[in-house]
């Protein structure tokens, strides 16, 4: 079919990954068939343009991801005024450093020794795509969605995260058109680092709030 010939021009590395766990081959091929049918018919009828679909996939594979959030966090760590602005309005602060594709109602939450923020969407899997890209499977899992609002410390333990008993755990259930990004605490051992180097250690999971960034041991 012509609309699929187009895809042959592209290398899709992820074709070679396979489902772990519950998925098995017959289910996968059923989905392949059904998705192909949707794309084929909708493209033939002119409701979707396969080239636009390619562009969407490429955008989220190559351009939009947690490196965007990491850049915001690193700047917030080194620039107190920027951090204040980020906490007030993520989109406006982001524009100041040339990130113009954030959009509305992305909200930054600052972790401190006294309070630790963690983000979930119990009803579906709302996630701040514009700053973190697409969510990992664990964020969409039933275990995460069901448990983190009820037993957040146990869920954090699944990620190897232990917080002091005195730290308040603040869980944000993204039930409407607001999205949240956590500003993790800056780890000790990063004093004097460049913004770029700082950004390289800001992980996606820390910006969802399920991990904390570990102290950096400086080499002698």
């Amino acid at each position: 079919m012509a609309d699929h010939d187009h895809d042959d021009d592209h290398q899709h590395d992820h074709d070679h990954h396979h489902h772990h766990g519950e998925g098995h081959a017959s289910e996968l091929s059923e989905m392949q068939i059904r998705v192909r049918a949707l794309e084929t018919i909708l493209a033939q009828k002119g409701y979707v343009d396969p080239a636009a679909l390619d562009e969407i996939v490429e955008t989220y594979e190559k351009r939009i991801g947690p490196h965007i959030g990491a850049k915001l966090v690193a700047r917030a760590w080194v620039d107190e005024d920027f951090k204040k602005e980020l906490l007030k309005d993520v989109a406006i602060a982001s524009e100041r450093i040339g990130l113009t594709e954030i959009g509305s109602h992305v909200i930054a939450l600052e972790n401190k020794p006294s309070v630790h923020h963690v983000v979930v969407c119990t009803l579906c899997s709302c996630y701040p795509w514009a700053v973190l890209g697409l969510p990992p499977t664990w964020y969409k899992s039933y275990a995460y969605r069901s448990r983190v609002v009820k037993e957040p410390r146990k869920v954090l333990a699944d990620f190897g995260t232990t917080l002091p008993d005195t730290t308040e755990i603040r869980v944000w259930d993204s039930t409407a058109e607001t999205r949240f990004i956590v500003i993790p605490q800056r780890p000790v051992g990063t004093e004097g680092w460049s913004e770029e180097r700082l950004a390289s250690i800001v992980s996606r999971d820390a910006m969802v709030g399920v991990t904390v960034l570990q102290p950096v041991i400086q080499e002698a």
Partner: peptide
């Protein structure tokens, strides 16, 4: 919570086409 190390963005091509659709 099932945490997959080095998880790819999509696990199969049909997932990426579904997202795009």
């Amino acid at each position: 919570v099932p945490v997959e190390a080095n998880e790819p963005l999509f696990h199969a091509r049909w997932e990426s086409r579904t997202f795009a659709l």
